[in-house]
Amino acid sequence: MNAVWQVIRRDVTLAMRSRQEVANPLIFFVLCASLFPLGVSPDADFLRPAAGGILWVSALLATLLSLDSLFRADLEDGALEQLVLTRHPFFVLVLGKVAAHWLLTGLPLILLSPLLGVMLFLPQDVIAVLMLTLLLGTPVLSLVGSVGAALTAGLRGAGVLLSLLVIPLYVPVLIFGTGAVEAAMQGMPYNGQLALMGGILLVSLVTAPFAAAAAVRISLSA
């Protein structure tokens, strides 16, 4: 447990030394979400029902952009090799890295989302639901994404490839996340969707770290 904590602290400290890189995905999130009123229609009648989907897709893309650096720097300077060689089971350390990634991107995204929700005319109680779905969903984005990031860590210009590998796996979370927001908007119960998102979170929590750890080992052997 202590080892996980150390990994998280190390990653957060490193990220805090280059704050711009932490801020970039968040700025992208805001920009991406504001493209829709500009590009499609600034009409509240269009934006209100679409807001949940817009914010979810923007959050998904922002997470995707930040994933590329999850293992890359550590792979290049050899730190990842050292982590594999420690006596701790490697998947636990991967879990630590994923947790740090979520703290640096997922959590800020959730905190930013009400601001954008208001700009897209979401009712207040629906904003709360949106934040709840993001709270359940962004960890999944980080966990599942870590597998893709690990597979492509050693490749040059892997950004597009990473999206290609990971986006299909993101679809279920996106569907249930936006589904819950939509249900809340229509005044219908949304606990079914939330329960499914919780289930997806648990499954990815207990499987993704193993897959990512195996993928890191494969990338290291290159």
Partner: peptide, 23 residues
């Protein structure tokens, strides 16, 4: 796409295996 991106065939095969199993 993953096969196309990784030069080393053995590594490509193992990486693709992980991806297939996740999917």
């Amino acid at each position: 796409a993953l096969y196309g991106a990784i030069r080393d065939r053995q590594i490509a095969g193992r990486a693709a295996s992980v991806l297939v199993l996740v999917g």
